[in-house]
Nucleic acid binder design. Structure first.
Lengths: 109, 109
DNA sequence: TAACTACATTACGATACTGTTGTCGAGTGC
DNA sequence: GCACTCGACAACAGTATCGTAATGTAGTTA
């Protein structure tokens, strides 16, 4: 699995993508779009974040290709570009689980 | 796939783990440990990073459970705790590919 | 014991990022 | 035209992060 060698350039790009997900606010936004596309105002309402803040996070997610944009009249609809975000989160969560278990085991001994 | 609801606490933890990978230097370090465990000095030599810098990155990766530590005499050996890091990178890379392809398609049209 | 090596830790300057406020352009409806 | 809403953008303060230099701490060797 995976390449045997990654150039610094690719490494930087990958890191940049990880950084896009390294923010609870952005993960929350992505989670809100799980089922269907949403407008900025929708997301502001669901997340409790500020409008400018949500807009900026969406710009970043869009620049990194995590979400697609669709303008319709006054509204801008954002939707997940790819369900693989959740695959990533799943891996992270299972790692969290095993870490927690390992830690509990250490504490118990 | 995945839970239907993630609490803010879990979201913060997941984000924290993504952040650990959101740094080219740390990805480079992880890549160096791909095949076998390595000492700090080994990693300094292979990556070209400073000693204190490598040490700090390793502390972070260890705190997040990405690497294991083993002390032997004067040396500290670090090893990957989990191969799933590469699964994460693979997903990121394939997303990079499709993004690049999509961008090329847009430019071509 | 003294000198040396490997690694961790601290302190610090430079930079990047987050969230907010204020503002502006675009589209809608009266 | 006028008022309103949606969303993007710029500027700003506060905070976090990176890399480095200096120092500290074990463990090893002479």
């Amino acid at each position: 699995m995976a390449k045997t060698k990654l150039t610094p350039d690719v490494l930087a790009l990958v890191a940049q993508r990880f950084r896009a997900l390294a923010e609870p606010a952005r993960l929350q936004i992505l989670q809100c779009m799980r089922r269907h596309e949403m407008t900025v105002t929708d997301l502001v309402g669901e997340t409790g974040l500020g409008q400018a803040n949500v807009s900026k996070h969406l710009q970043l997610l869009h620049a990194q290709g995590f979400v697609n944009r669709r303008k319709d009249g006054l509204f801008t609809y954002y939707a997940l570009a790819d369900q693989s975000v959740f695959a990533l989160c799943d891996i992270m969560c299972s790692q969290l689980d095993s870490n927690a278990r390992a830690r509990r085991r250490v504490l118990a001994s």
